[in-house]
């Protein structure tokens, strides 16, 4: 489960991570893309942090939707619509909730990844955000089904997400600007998969702190 305070904490921790890893994500993107992923994500989450105080008294769905709208209108590139759609879809999945059950959390993740797939017209294995996100969500589902706590499930999810990031080094990009490189994209990790892995890292840290 997750309380509203934890959802807000997750957003803040993730925003901090995007600021902290701004240069690293930009460097990964310079290798195979257009070199702005960290710049765009940190700009977007800076705007989210400015927006957050105006919505933190609202329901979780309104908070997530406000984060999504802010990302869509401030990140730009492909990441803006993708991350923005993910937060908006996650919000819509938990309408009216003040607190999230484990089922709610899984549903929100499923809706978020569905939104990214719809908007980006991508599938797993194309060297995108999905390559860390889908394994992480599958890990949560498997761990919860095996009777683990959400805190432990998120430890598994983060590990799966970083495994996915490693996997992106071995494959050719077929979506996004890295696809223009063909085989030259092999050996480089995907910046989008990396920024998504930090989302699961943020969630794991928040859950561990709350002890759910």
């Amino acid at each position: 489960m997750a309380t509203k305070a934890e959802v807000l904490d997750f957003i803040r921790v993730y925003a901090d991570k995007m600021a902290e890893h701004r240069q690293e994500l930009t460097d990964f993107d310079q290798a195979i893309g257009d070199g702005d992923h960290g710049i765009n994500m940190s700009r977007g989450f800076k705007a989210v942090m400015e927006k957050l105080p105006t919505v933190e008294d609202k329901n979780i769905d309104d908070i997530l939707k406000a984060v999504g709208m802010t990302l869509v209108s401030t990140v730009g590139g492909a990441s803006g619509p993708l991350y923005g759609t993910a937060f908006m879809k996650a919000g819509a999945a938990v309408k009216g909730k003040e607190e999230l059950s484990n089922e709610d959390i899984i549903l929100a993740f499923d809706e978020a990844v569905g939104g990214i797939q719809f908007r980006g017209k991508a599938v797993e294995g194309e060297k995108t955000i999905l390559d860390s996100m889908i394994p992480a969500i599958n890990a949560i589902k498997a761990s919860i089904a095996a009777g683990k706590s959400m805190t432990d499930a998120l430890v598994d999810a983060e590990a799966a997400a970083w495994g996915g990031v490693e996997y992106t080094k071995t494959i050719i990009a077929t979506k996004g600007r890295a696809s223009y490189l063909g085989e030259r994209s092999i050996g480089h990790q995907d910046p989008g998969a990396t920024s998504m892995a930090y989302a699961f890292q943020a969630a794991r840290e928040v859950a561990a702190k709350a002890g759910n």
Partner: peptide, 12 residues
């Protein structure tokens, strides 16, 4: 006009 080398956002 988006940011440098970055698509403009839908609202724009």
């Amino acid at each position: 006009a988006g940011s440098v080398f970055t698509s403009p956002t839908p609202d724009q």
